[in-house]
Design a protein around this nucleic acid. Structure first.
Lengths: 346, 346
DNA sequence: GCGCCAGATGAAAACGCTTGCAAAGGCTAT
DNA sequence: ATAGCCTTTGCAAGCGTTTTCATCTGGCGC
């Protein structure tokens, strides 16, 4: 069991010069036959290609990258992709890129600005042709790095209000306002919020701000003890909910910074026999798959994560191909009313 | 909005020779100061490093890769990472690799052998130092590619019975046997199965085989019309369950190929008012986060996806560092009994 | 039949880094 | 002092492509 199997390559893998030699053409012609088909006579081209496959030739990306100054590689600096919405975006992005012969270099960080810079630097060193990041909240060092590296980048999920950075995302605050208005329309006046961790996270901040804004517009203030921040996970959502219940009970509407937190709260409701939506209305954000399936199904905002990933990819590809794209591209994030929200009790 | 912002690099990014020149040393010394610290006198080294950061020097990975024939990059060829268990593994893998200065190149495919080969080839061209794949079920072309490329690879999730390939995973069949025995012990005799799609998927096949095996051991045969295959998603799980109910009702135990399918079945039970586990016991596989949170909580097999990802990473790193690792490494997949399984009715 | 031109090919110079080898300097041991 | 050794540095040869420029065809119009 401990024997290391070393598949020995009798002759180290064939280079382009081997192909050229075997095909009886020059290095230049061989190169062109494989990557610039138009420049070489058809029969030579086919011949070279046949020889190449015969030999099992695999181009050496690093050498090519060195010569062309293009790696056909795009980097993504993402928070943990075990968050389903980032996973969906990653998937869509990788798929979109692959379609154009690009490969995704993935670096993740745990919402830590330092780590994010390090990860970005690593990708830059790998020579990525472009970079996809999440949100607007990045350390100055990160932005500086992006600037001086000169690689095109797309910020996703959020929209740059200044319209300075290329970005594709949704209007978190506005969507959050709509959720809150929906609850207000149902007669709710006592609100509580479980927000995502707002540090280094503009989405979480904007969503929270949206709730405040909508309430303020109707002259309602969100009590400080009715706001709790929680890290992304069901248990944390549950914990935060319990905390709110103990600290400041009496709210009839609970707005959550994302569906996972809402699921946690919902689970706790079930355990306590708290009826949703009769006694408490709960709203989430993101519309993950589970949101529609759970009972009661979750009222939430549909954030088209896959679309964002796909769009980020296609925008990047367009820019790499020299085409222009609108600097900021907004995708819709609609309110999806389901069964977890209802009229305020009495 | 349509103006393309082109951060112009007044002087194209500094090369190592610029650093060397600015520091007053040779190219060789500059190189060593940055990447072979031991070989250069401390003060020169520090001086060079300072100059490098002053200039904002970023090493050119492709050039380095070309010279060293190492890319410090590991490729992963995964099915869609929006499957939470693969997402978790991806996350853990990326994290583990990053810790050692390696970056993950991610290629995904939709369970399509052709696409898998293409993706692998793309990664190989990018010069990955190692490769991580899922499962054992791969086209001969894929294995051939792996063989002739000579890069080390780790197969994850499954265990190679022949002990030929390096792999880290769980014993799916055995775990499946245990689930089934658990249900048998509860008095169930009428079984149905919603399996994952078994084509090109040894995990799905093994899990299904495990059920058959356990039943056979007690002289029970699994009726063909009590087996349904479904693609990975809640709605598909629901659909498959409905199909079973219509086609061959009367079963009291439902074994699902993974938790997501089980969640779909459970959702349908709720809708139909079918009481779980009083009227029907449902078991899943994987133990995704939701499994513990849903009501009733789901009996399942805990597959430590993160551990697998992490282990695959550390094993790969070890091999890249020239150390040996056991060819096959099994991780435990324990049965987790929760509330969705109970005694067979009457 | 001659000069030209377009198309096809080749020679060789990058691309930016690492590294084997050799030289130079500063020691210690004699 | 001198020989020999170790440490530190520099020179230059790659690493495997792409790509510019020049060369060489053959075919065309006149």
């Amino acid at each position: 069991m401990m024997i290391e199997f070393r598949p020995m390559k009798l002759r180290s893998s064939p280079k382009l010069r081997d192909v050229a030699r075997a095909a009886g053409v020059s290095l230049a012609t061989a190169s062109r036959a494989l990557s610039e088909p138009g420049l070489v006579r058809e029969d030579t081209r086919e011949h070279v290609r046949n020889v190449a496959t015969m030999l099992g030739y695999v181009p050496h990306g690093a050498a090519r990258a060195l010569a062309t100054r293009r790696s056909r590689t795009v980097g993504a600096v993402f928070p943990p992709v075990d968050n389903p919405i980032f996973a969906a975006a990653t998937q869509a992005l990788a798929h979109e890129l692959a379609g154009a012969g690009y490969t995704l270099l993935l670096a993740t960080h745990e919402y830590d600005p330092e780590a994010e810079v390090a990860a970005t630097r690593a990708l830059l060193e790998r020579g990525v042709d472009g970079l996809v990041l999440i949100g607007l909240d990045h350390s100055p060092a990160l932005y500086q790095l992006l600037g001086q590296s000169g690689v095109p980048y797309e910020l996703t999920w959020s929209l740059d209000p200044a319209g300075y950075h290329h970005c594709v995302g949704v209007a978190h605050r506005l969507a959050s306002v709509r959720v809150t208005q929906h609850l207000l329309d149902l007669g709710h006046r006592e609100f509580a919020v479980i927000a995502g961790v707002t540090a280094h996270n503009d989405r979480a901040r904007e969503r929270l701000a949206g709730v405040r804004e909508a309430l303020a517009a109707r002259g309602i203030e969100l009590r400080a003890d009715r706001v709790s921040e929680a890290e992304f996970s069901i248990p944390q959502g549950r914990r935060a909910f319990v905390g709110l219940l103990e600290r400041a009970p009496g709210f009839t509407a609970l707005v959550c910074g994302n569906d996972t937190l809402a699921l946690g709260a919902l689970a706790e409701c079930v355990r306590r026999g708290l009826r949703v939506p009769q006694e408490l209305s709960v709203a989430g954000f993101d519309d993950i798959d589970m949101a529609a399936e759970i009972t009661p199904s979750l009222t939430t905002v549909h954030v088209p994560a896959s679309d964002i990933g796909r769009l980020a990819g296609s925008r990047m590809l367009a820019r790499l191909a020299g085409r222009q794209v609108p600097t900021v591209e907004e995708v819709r994030a609609d309110l999806v009313v389901r069964a977890s929200t209802g009229r305020a009790p009495n």
